[in-house]
Simulated assay, not measured.
Amino acid sequence: MNNFTKIIISSAILICSYLSANAQGCVAIRQFSGLGNAVGQGNMLEPGEWNVSANYRYFKSFRHFRGSHEEPNRIEDGTEVINHQHGLDINISYAFNERIYGIVSLPFQYNERSSLYEHGRTERHTTYSKGFGDMRIGGGYWLLSGEKAKKGNTAIGLGLKFPTGDYAATSTFYNQGTEGGTEVKTVDQSIQLGDGGTGIIIDFQGLWNLKGTLFWYYDGFYMFSPKETNGTPTNRRRENEAIMSVPDQYALRTGLFKSFTNIHGLGISLGGRVEGIPVHDAIGGSEGFRRPGYIVSVEPGISYMKGNVTGTLNVPFALIRNRTQSVTDIENSTPDDVVHGDAAFADYLINFTLAVRIPKKITSPFGSL
Rank of each mutant, 00 (worst) to 15 (best):
G177W: 13
A149F: 10
Q176G: 13
E241M: 12
G276N: 01
N308T: 11
S114D: 15
Y56I: 01
E70H: 02
A343F: 05
P226E: 06
G42P: 01
T213L: 03
S11R: 09
W208S: 09
T261P: 07
G194S: 09
L14Q: 15
V104H: 08
R124D: 10
E228V: 03
G159C: 13
I13K: 03
G197C: 07
G139C: 10
F289N: 04
I103Q: 13
A344P: 02
Y141L: 10
D337K: 12
P247C: 08
V296M: 11
I7S: 10
S20F: 02
T328M: 03
L158P: 09
I92D: 02
P163G: 10
G159M: 12
F257T: 07
G267V: 00
E228T: 10
E275T: 08
L45S: 03
N22C: 13
A28Q: 05
L144R: 14
F204V: 06
C26A: 12
I302V: 14
A38H: 05
L106N: 03
V39I: 05
T170W: 13
T5R: 05
F59I: 08
P300V: 02
R236L: 15
V279M: 06
H340K: 13
R321C: 06
A169N: 14
C16P: 04
H340V: 02
N262L: 00
E299A: 10
Y174R: 13
A38K: 01
D195W: 11
K148D: 15
A346S: 13
S10D: 11
V279G: 03
E112R: 09
S286H: 00
N3D: 12
G25S: 04
A21M: 14
S10G: 12
